[in-house]
Simulated assay, not measured.
Amino acid sequence: MKNILLALAVLISAGGCATSPLPINNARSVSMERVFRADALPLANSARAVFVRDAGFSGGGAYQHLYIDGKKAASLNPGEKVEFMLTPGKHIFGAAPTDSSDTRSLTVTEQDLKADKSYFYRIQMDGDSSRATLQRFMPDYQ
């Protein structure tokens, strides 16, 4: 019985650390004081890029910092989203967790954005919370 309770406690603890995709309609918007790009206003013929941080506990005590073309664009808590209107063409998106000791690396992905199109990305943590990943996805409502 003791072993069963121990195994159950381990499973619950491990599940609590996992992140999971969050439906985009359930994500909260990032607070404006954590959005650092001034060009987030809609522009004619622009491309829309939406970034959603997974819900869950993994890395929950630290922001995930989003970078666009090498510049910090926003800092997201679990379950938050941020949207940017960008010029069409190639852009480099990056994500990295808060790291006061500067030991974590920036994960990047390149995307060729088309005018009047929408692009959606998940920001998620790897198993040990040392690295963020960006994954493109299609939301359920489209």
Rank of each mutant, 00 (worst) to 15 (best):
T19L: 07
P21A: 08
P21Q: 12
L22Q: 12
L22M: 12
I24G: 02
I24S: 06
N25D: 14
V30D: 04
R34M: 08
V35E: 05
F36A: 02
A38D: 07
D39I: 01
D39H: 01
D39Y: 03
L41I: 14
A47W: 01
A47D: 04
R48V: 15
V50W: 05
V50M: 14
V52M: 08
V52T: 14
R53Q: 06
D54M: 09
A55G: 10
G56T: 00
G56H: 03
G59P: 04
G60H: 04
A62D: 13
Y63P: 05
Y63E: 07
H65W: 00
L66W: 00
Y67N: 07
Y67V: 06
Y67I: 12
I68M: 08
I68K: 01
D69Y: 01
D69N: 03
G70T: 07
G70V: 08
K72F: 07
K72H: 12
S75V: 06
S75W: 05
P78F: 04
G79K: 02
E80G: 02
E80R: 04
V82Q: 03
V82L: 03
E83Y: 03
F84A: 01
F84K: 08
M85P: 07
T87E: 15
T87L: 14
P88F: 05
G89D: 07
K90V: 12
K90Y: 09
H91R: 06
I92D: 12
G94W: 02
G94I: 06
A96D: 06
A96E: 10
P97A: 09
P97F: 05
D99S: 12
S100H: 13
S100A: 13
S101K: 09
R104A: 06
S105D: 09
S105A: 07
S105M: 01
S105T: 10
L106Q: 08
T107I: 06
T107N: 12
Q111C: 14
Q111E: 15
L113G: 05
K114A: 13
A115H: 09
D116Q: 11
D116Y: 02
D116I: 00
K117G: 00
Y119S: 02
R122S: 11
I123E: 03
Q124T: 15
Q124A: 15
M125Q: 10
D128N: 13
D128P: 00
S129T: 08
R131Y: 11
T133K: 15
T133R: 15
